[in-house]
Design a protein around this nucleic acid. Sequence first.
DNA 1: ATGTCGTAACGTTTACGA
Length: 260
Amino acid sequence: MKIATFNINGIKARHAALCDWLDEAQPDVALLQEIKSVDENFPREVFEERGYNVETHGQKSFNGVAILSKLPLEDVRRGLPGDETDEQARWIEATVVGEHAAVRLCGLYLPNGNPAPGPKFDYKLAWMDRLKTRAAELLAQEEPALMAGDYNVIPQDADAARPEVWQDDALARPESRRAFREIVNLGFTEAFRARTLGPGHYTFWDYQAAAWDRNDGIRIDHLLLTPQAADLLTDCRIDKDIRNRPKPSDHVPIWVDLAA
DNA sequence: ATGTCGTAACGTTTACGA
């Protein structure tokens, strides 16, 4: 079961490029972030034509997450628990039943948090605290599950081409890295690092200052697996090449293959 | 040159978020 996560930076501007990638990568599941669309305006038909079931959790202009799945999506839940006043659309989960195992899928768009310090950084850390609570619940189920998406966290200096410029940024500050580590250390496997070590692997290149041409990237899109999901892991890769295409997102997809 | 995008709106340009 091939499960991808992809921050598409706006479905309205990206649906053609997204379809091209879906057609060739053929993921069974695609967890999307930054659809920047309300549910009613999401072009679900173009994905349904390709055999995908579609569940969205959108809002106007900003944020928004979605799940595309060739298998039926069961028990869909929208919104990260823990704060009834939070109106930002950043979390969606659902279950798919594979041939060998059922997998709980959680798609997330973690707050950017800049400028830091400040209220946006406080919101990021509070959101990560709620994420930790949900993460612990998932682990307690002792079943295959994953939390995947744009974490807006550079876990280590090796995950940035120029770590020194990110030192005081909300994506790399010690508080963000610590909160990320605390979640992983509850018992998750970070899928990419389970298979690939060393520097030079990125999922995001800023549109500005020719970052892509200079390979000035950062690794901020992650898939965290419960032990029962990690036992099924057979592959994890970054589809870097599509950043070269016309009208690319500033992120590229990263995916796992699970024997589920 | 605070360098690029995507989105929305009191829109042919500006503001915001990233």
